[in-house]
Write a protein that binds this DNA or RNA. Structure first.
Lengths: 247, 247
DNA sequence: CGTACAGTTGATGATCATCAATCCCTGTGG
DNA sequence: CCACAGGGATTGATGATCATCAACTGTACG
């Protein structure tokens, strides 16, 4: 029970945002939009043990090494999961968005630190209760399984990106992911960046300076336009997609 | 029951190799040894739909893009999962060992190609039947969930390795993983490499040449001894662990 | 109006990829 | 038995990419 600064206010289910996917085992759509949305019945089950918490940007959901007492589902906002490396280096293993699962543990402890990137609303579920609920609701558990599979694929994509792609390609892939995962408050086709350049560097395994230079290079190539440090627009869709293409 | 080419020789459970872990939600041990081993009852449930297949080294379990009809659990042997990248480059997303799950799909299709590295024995489960079984056996499903969580953490570790570690550290981390995951037929503390240098290169996101040079450098530093291309021994445990340390 | 922090830009160097030549091992056929 | 072919692996030389160090700019905030 890590109260932190965010008050866990009552139990109120989030609004329904889309249809379920059930038929295809361990499946998920590529962009994660329609993944792991819960049925009303499933939400009701979770509501029995979950509370809703609101957190301010930069607040910490949990710290690496803490006993893993809660699992979170993002309702609104964005989260980064950070790991400290040797010599004050940091790695961001994932950016997470609405409907994503946060707080997977190993040996009862969190393996990284989760930090809110924006005003955040989450379901907060004690793991002990969650295990009981899952074991009584195989379909709900199946949704969790699908969700974790999706995060696994995302992590593999990330690994390929870091290992085999150039700086420009990594940045393009990140922008591509953000474009597809962030809720459409990007009017006019603009991509809103919830994170700092430094966070981008830690995610893409680049130096801060390289991120900066890469953004500039993409601008000079007329591939993107950077209106403001937090707002990017795609100018040359074809070349952008080619850079961001996963294969 | 899908006989297929590999003789589905009746339903015969693999020998028990360790105790289950149940109490800790979404948990797994670090080295994966005691992860996702099934109880007799659970194995019995899986046996209703699974067949056992034997495959020769270098044979293909499935190809990327194929409809995902089966999920596999490795009983004996090792598997690599390969993805083709642009320009005849390849990436190996994972090496998988006994008790690992192979064949997670996206949108009903496999996203990479799975190839046997050694004589291989697998459980082979049609996904349609598997979904039914899982929905009726929440505890079994929970084991699958834990297993996928473990693979997720492994993928994240891999991503950090590729993004932030030197060639020597990547190789050391791979050797470290092999040492902990491969069954103890490495007598005398030797690590048996089931894969070629080329596979190591594709896993570590290095060139073939860099892998070679890195092995040599580790030898010259008296950190490892390479008896044969497939057998390595740790000479300086302290420095080895330091290189391989995850942080 | 300065202090602080995030970001940009430039110069230099380390790491690793690439190209190319050679070696080693295994199997094959004379 | 030997020679040879072919793939895997090694070694060396050169170059590209990106990290690092350092200086500087902008912007928010006291």
């Amino acid at each position: 029970m890590n109260p932190s600064k965010a008050g866990a206010s009552g139990v109120r289910p989030p609004r329904r945002t889309g249809p379920d996917i059930k038929a295809i085992p361990f499946n998920s759509s590529t962009d994660g939009v329609a993944v792991s949305l819960l049925s009303d019945a499933e939400r009701h089950q979770l509501a029995l043990i979950a509370s809703i918490a609101h957190l301010k940007p930069a607040s910490v959901l949990y710290e690496a090494g803490d006993p893993a007492e809660f699992l979170y589902i993002i309702i609104h906002g964005a989260v980064k999961t950070v790991r400290r490396l040797a010599g004050r280096k940091r790695a961001i293993t994932a950016f997470l968005f609405p409907n994503d699962l946060v707080g997977l543990a190993a040996e009862g402890r969190y393996i990284n630190t989760a930090v809110a990137l924006a005003p955040l609303t989450v379901y907060r579920m004690p793991v002990a209760g969650l295990e009981r609920v899952l074991l009584r609701n195989p379909e709900l558990e199946y949704h969790f399984l699908c969700k974790v599979c999706h995060e696994l694929r995302e992590a593999q994509r990330h690994a390929i990106s870091l290992g085999r792609k150039s700086a420009a390609e990594r940045i393009a892939m990140l922008l591509h992911m953000l474009e597809h995962r962030q809720p459409p408050d990007m009017r006019d086709g603009e991509i809103a960046l919830a994170m700092s350049r430094s966070d981008i560097a830690d995610y893409a395994a680049l130096s801060l300076e390289s991120v900066s230079r890469t953004f500039r290079a993409l601008q000079r190539g007329r591939i993107i336009a950077v209106r403001d440090k937090r707002h990017v627009r795609i100018l040359d869709r074809a070349r952008f997609e080619q850079l961001a293409s996963t294969p």
